[in-house]
Design a protein around this nucleic acid. Structure first.
Length: 469
RNA sequence: CGGGGCGUAGCGCAGCUUGGUUAGCGCGCCUGCUUUGGGAGCAGGAGGCCGCGGGUUCAAAUCCCGCCUCCCCGACCA
């Protein structure tokens, strides 16, 4: 009966809390090879909902799904100097297969710009073939030194978009559109995570890009997490892979390409942006189970009533499961809380005698006693309210922990508990080096009004600096 | 790669200093009964190449040598 701490409190040890949640909510396990991850059914169900929401937006943006191979000839990587330089340290390379040494080693893809570039060159002949808008859902491998489940694993799942365009302007506009209408829209509307959108300073740019955009979310411990990224690749990959098209005058021109990606890291962000000391808190739109109907006791009347409630809510489009009354009540509801299920509907003999049920909201703990006949409508309203409340709460938390400062010294102080925002001119490459000694980085550059700059050479930019995952 | 630590049941650990024959504890798991409105109680039970290899000894989880692993802190990334 005595309630003890099930999870390490966030304030005691945030990383430990994170591990506890991942384990106790049955989201993932470490794989047998260091840095690999087993995604368990509950974690995968969340990922599938993320995937479908992101995929729908990608298709809305006009891109089509395709699939390219896991194995890439090593020579492809060597064609783009910056790209090979950036990725070499984390490549997994197959040198032995089929019982013998391979003539040319094969790289396990860490990202697919190179293979896809090769095929873009083959498929693009004329300006009529442009823009070419591709996306793939795949696994990628980056040999990580410091792996953490969902946040940084040696193998992870993601989507990577790759496009080719006839002009710099068209490529830039498309990458920006993806960033705003796929990533930011998804993060805000579905994940309920507000993010700072901006461009990366040169030091943090993708290997081979001319410009990298990012969406930076704030976690509950005040650290930053990069949740998505979009790159303008200029003509770098087009040159390396001969991606030419004939223009309307019949002359050969190099394409401009983009790439953009987001991954299972979303799940880590979800945990850390919304979770509390009782576990996960899932935005209703992402929750595999939106409401659990908990039978207080394992009795026929109670179970029958639970089944009726579940049927009613399912008919109204709510994702429901019934928890029949086996095992102690306290244990069961604690488990549902750890899993972050948005609504808990408790049905017991005392409720039934009065024709009511008790409904508890996961995000704010609000508990209501509602008549059975109005439950359906209230449940839908509560789910909607919770979805928008979570975004508001996250926004308030983030804004409250973002400090406007003047100097690098003040930024270091502010970054101990949140984000610091200051003029980019007062930081620059030298300031970045100073910040780095405190494990703080420039997360992104923005215009003073918070909008996305055209490039890092724009005047009067501000930067957001923080510790990060 | 440099510094620090760990390896004993599914998980978390004790035992090692001062060797001693059936290797313990908590959680979890199985069976039964009683329970069930905030992590239930009792009883019974299953589960171990004590990281690997060698050595010392009548006897090694324990002492010695070698190796391996994983974790934590300093250079990259979705």
């Amino acid at each position: 009966m005595a309630s003890q701490t099930v999870l390490t409190p966030q304030a005691d040890d945030f990383p430990r809390w994170y591990q506890d949640v991942v384990a106790k909510a049955e989201m993932a396990d470490n794989g047998p090879v260091r840095g690999t991850m087993v995604i368990r059914p509950y974690g995968y169900a969340i990922w599938e909902r993320i995937q479908s929401a992101v995929d729908a937006r990608i298709k809305q943006a006009g891109a089509q799904n395709a699939y390219f191979p896991l194995f890439i000839p090593q020579s492809y990587f060597e064609r783009e100097a910056k790209h090979v330089e950036g990725f070499s340290p984390e490549l997994a390379v197959v040198t032995y297969a089929g019982g013998e040494e391979l003539a040319e080693p094969v790289v396990v893809r860490p990202t697919s710009e190179t293979v896809i570039g090769e095929f873009m060159a083959k498929w693009i002949q004329s300006y009529r073939d442009l823009p070419l808008l591709l996306n793939q859902w795949a696994n990628v491998v980056r040999w990580e030194l410091r792996p953490r489940l969902f946040l940084r694993s040696s193998e992870f799942l993601w989507q990577e978009g790759h496009t080719a365009h006839a002009s710099f302007e068209d490529a830039a506009a498309y990458a920006r559109m993806i960033h705003a209408e796929v990533y930011d829209d998804f993060l805000e509307k579905v994940m309920a995570i507000p993010s700072y959108l901006g461009i990366k300073p040169a030091s943090e740019r993708f290997a081979g890009a001319i410009n990298s955009m990012t969406a930076e979310g704030m976690m509950r411990d005040g650290k930053a997490l990069q949740l998505a990224t979009s790159h303008e690749l200029g003509q770098n990959f087009a040159k390396a892979f001969d991606i030419y098209f004939q223009n309307e005058e019949g002359q050969a021109e190099l394409c401009y390409t983009t790439s953009w990606g987001s991954s299972t890291r979303y799940v880590g962000g979800l945990i850390m942006a919304h979770g509390d000391d009782n576990g996960l808190v899932l935005p209703p739109q992402l929750a595999p189970t939106q409401a659990v109907v908990v039978a207080v006791r394992d009795e026929a009347d109670v179970n029958d009533a639970c089944a009726r409630v579940a049927r009613d809510l399912t008919a109204a489009g709510v994702r429901v499961v019934v928890d029949r009354g086996r095992g102690s009540f306290g244990r069961r509801i604690t488990d549902w809380e750890i899993k972050g299920v948005p609504l808990r509907i408790e049905v017991g003999p005392r409720d039934l005698a009065q024709g009511v049920v008790s409904v508890v909201r996961r995000d704010n703990g609000e508990k209501l006693t509602l008549p059975l006949d109005s439950l359906r409508q209230h449940a839908i309203e509560m789910l909607d309210a919770m979805q928008s409340n979570m975004l508001e709460a996250a926004l308030k938390f983030r804004d409250g922990a973002t400090y406007d400062v003047k100097t690098v010294g003040e930024a270091i102080e502010a970054a101990q508990e949140g984000f610091a925002r200051l003029s980019w001119d007062s930081v620059g490459p030298h300031g970045e080096a100073v910040l780095k000694t405190d494990a703080i980085t420039v997360r992104c550059l923005q215009r003073a009004d918070g909008s996305m700059p055209d490039s890092d050479t724009e005047k009067n930019l501000v930067c957001i600096v923080a510790k990060s995952y």
